[in-house]
Amino acid sequence: MGFLSRLASLFGFKKNEANILVVGLDNSGKSTILNFLKQGDKNVPVDTVPTIGLNVEKMKAANIEITAFDMSGQGRYRPLWEQYYKECQGIIFVVDSSDKLRVVVARDELERMMKHPDLERRNVPVLFFANKMDKRDAVSSVKVSTLMGLNEVIHNKNWHIVASNAINGDGIDEGITWLADVMKSNMATKK
């Protein structure tokens, strides 16, 4: 660590670094999205196995060093998300827009999350990916937004929703750029 950056971190400015929490129900495409972000255009779709617990990924996106905590979405592991709320500067919530039946479940989880003491009063930006938009039975991002009740559930936080396709990367960059910008301005105003 050089002298200047050490000085910077002493005063609380970190390099452009951020912890992002990636949540959402199982099979919604979280790991696939992160995989795309890591590999960029060289993306070779790997056959993802369901995540057990969590995976930690580091990557550079939109000019920012991101440490992403890719959480497992299976019911058994959802209660463990909260362990990572305190230290995150941004949240990505992935919804499978072709799985209308379970959107209500996702909404429940989101509500629970927003009420959690470690998040409730913090202005953490939340990015929603309405994923799998390529699927025939996928609904639009606006529809997802209504089904999830984003306007009602989220009060004091910046949020944004983008339709995405994790397989070919459509929408991913747009979403991440939005999230990075908000986080950067957050860091600047805080210090």
Binding site: G53, L54, L80, Q83
Partner: peptide, 10 residues
């Protein structure tokens, strides 16, 4: 809940 690190270790 130590199984949380399963995927990371895999």
């Amino acid at each position: 809940d130590v199984i949380i690190v399963t995927s990371s270790l895999m």
